[in-house]
């Protein structure tokens, strides 16, 4: 937990106090509601005890019907999160002592080449972090990678165009790019007007981006974030101006379009792995490894489950049927 890594002296107790106060207030609120309901039921019980049993029996009824504090139907998600946290903690600890291997991701390795190519051609770079707002995790991933791209454009002195479909994302992106230029000592080259808001409308945005592409003719285009029907229009327009294109999204329906129209595509989880891959930060690499380990566990569970259910359907595996059924039930 890096926010506790170098905390100010009073930071941790304050945070703990806030969380405790919030939890207590919620619990007290629920407790008040419960006691009111119980009192109400006891009153009702006293009135009708002659027909339905003794007062004591009916007063005990609310306790027997107590509603659960935990949403049992979400236990599988909890197990996955706990496992992920355990793996991430272990590998983060491990990564600080030893370099961990990350497989090569072509799209991310080509990132620097793409910016370099744009610089050699004297043209700009276009970056689009999806069409959703900052409450979408893919947009955050897109903005994070944008910081790395901005460092390269600052280093190579290439123009960075980033039209946005959400004003909140524009504000965050401006800050990220400014910080990247500051780190490279090129704050004078930072142009906030090139990271501009166009429109919230999906196809209005596509028309605007298409216009910028045709006028500025960027030599490299990056589409990293959430995309829907506009993905192919953007990628094909970029292709028509001869740009090298790197795309990435976790939307399964849009991946084929990007694969068909772009030079490199980050598929699904690779988008989230990009930050660790580019920064080589041990904490991030550790979390990436932890994620991979959990994936291995899911693959193993899938294979074992598939075999179990398949065998239980045959004549030889009749004895395994209850186990297979409980396995299926647990996954639901």
């Amino acid at each position: 937990m890096s926010i506790f890594r170098r905390p100010p002296r009073s930071f941790v107790p304050i945070l703990a106090l806030i969380l405790c106060a919030l939890s207590m207030s919620f619990l007290m609120a629920d407790q008040t509601v419960k006691s009111t309901v119980t009192e109400h039921r006891q009153g009702e019980a006293a009135l009708c005890c002659s027909d339905h049993g003794t007062t004591a029996e009916l007063a005990a009824k609310p306790a027997a019907e107590a509603k659960p504090w935990f949403a049992k139907e979400r236990k599988t998600v909890l197990i996955i999160i706990v496992l992920l946290l355990l793996f991430v903690s272990y590998f983060t600890f491990h990564a600080q002592r030893k370099d961990l291997f990350i497989r090569r991701i072509s799209g991310l390795s080509a990132l620097e080449d793409a910016v370099g190519r744009a610089t050699e051609m004297g043209r700009g770079v276009m970056y689009i972090p999806g069409i959703m707002d900052m409450d979408d995790i893919q947009t955050i991933a897109g903005v994070t990678i944008m910081g790395h791209v901005a460092k390269k454009t600052a280093e190579y002195d290439a123009a960075l165009y980033a039209p946005m479909t959400r004003s909140f994302v524009m504000s965050v992106a401006q800050e990220v790019v400014k910080q990247a230029y500051l780190e490279k000592g090129r704050l004078d080259a930072f142009r906030p007007d090139r990271i501009n808001y166009l429109t919230d409308d999906q196809f209005g945005f596509v028309a605007g981006v298409g216009g910028i592409m045709m006028r500025e003719k960027p030599a490299a285009c990056f589409y990293l974030g959430t995309f829907y029907a506009e993905s192919l229009i953007l990628a094909e327009t970029g292709n028509s101006v001869g740009a090298i294109q790197i795309a990435g999204t976790a939307e399964p329906s849009q991946i084929p379009f990007f694969v068909a129209a772009c030079d490199y595509t980050l598929i699904g989880e690779e988008l989230f792995a990009a930050s660790a891959y580019l920064s080589k930060n041990p904490r991030e690499v550790g979390s990436l490894k932890g994620q991979d380990m959990l994936k291995l566990v899911i693959i193993a569970v899938t294979i074992v489950g598939t075999l179990l259910v398949t065998i239980s359907e045959t004549e030889f595996g009749k004895g395994l049927t209850p186990l297979a059924e409980s396995f299926m039930q647990y996954l639901k």
Partner: peptide
């Protein structure tokens, strides 16, 4: 898994880009 992992990183302040 990427969603969960990225969310955790943001909540715990590991990812702050």
């Amino acid at each position: 898994l990427g969603y969960i992992s990225a969310s955790m990183k943001i909540i715990f302040g590991v990812e702050r880009s």
